[in-house]
């Protein structure tokens, strides 16, 4: 089960910047680790993450093996209009995750 937390101010004045914070629970296996019996643990990281506000893509991130487990992202956006902020991601195993929050521009 993909667990994530998304934090954004629910209401923002037009033209004002708002901080978006995101925490995704994921082991971010680098592929370099081995089990105690010598078997390699296959690489499994969140390889792409997209954040959209309505139909507009506001952030796209591609991660590799250098990102720590449970990645934390923080970025600022200036929402042009009210809408749903949706973050979607997919990992190397094909497991998808999604978290959403509503922003009201006043």
């Amino acid at each position: 089960m993909a667990l994530a937390r998304l934090q954004v101010s629910p209401s923002v004045r037009a033209g004002e910047a708002v901080e978006v914070r995101l925490l995704v629970q994921h082991p971010m296996e680098t592929g370099f680790r081995r089990e105690s019996d010598g078997r390699a643990v296959p690489m499994n990281v969140v390889n792409s993450l997209v954040c959209r506000l309505g139909a507009v893509e506001v952030l796209r991130a591609e991660f590799g093996s250098g990102v720590s487990a449970n990645p934390y992202l923080s970025f600022w956006i200036v929402p042009p209009a009210s809408g749903e902020l949706v973050v979607e991601w997919v990992d190397d195993a094909g497991v998808k995750g999604r978290v959403a929050a509503t922003i009201a521009v006043t």
Binding site: L3, R5, Q7, R21, L23, Q25, A69, N70, Y72
Partner: peptide, 12 residues
């Protein structure tokens, strides 16, 4: 409390 990764376990 948001960035603390331990809170993911608390939520779970």
């Amino acid at each position: 409390d948001f960035a603390n990764p331990g809170m993911l376990w608390v939520a779970r």
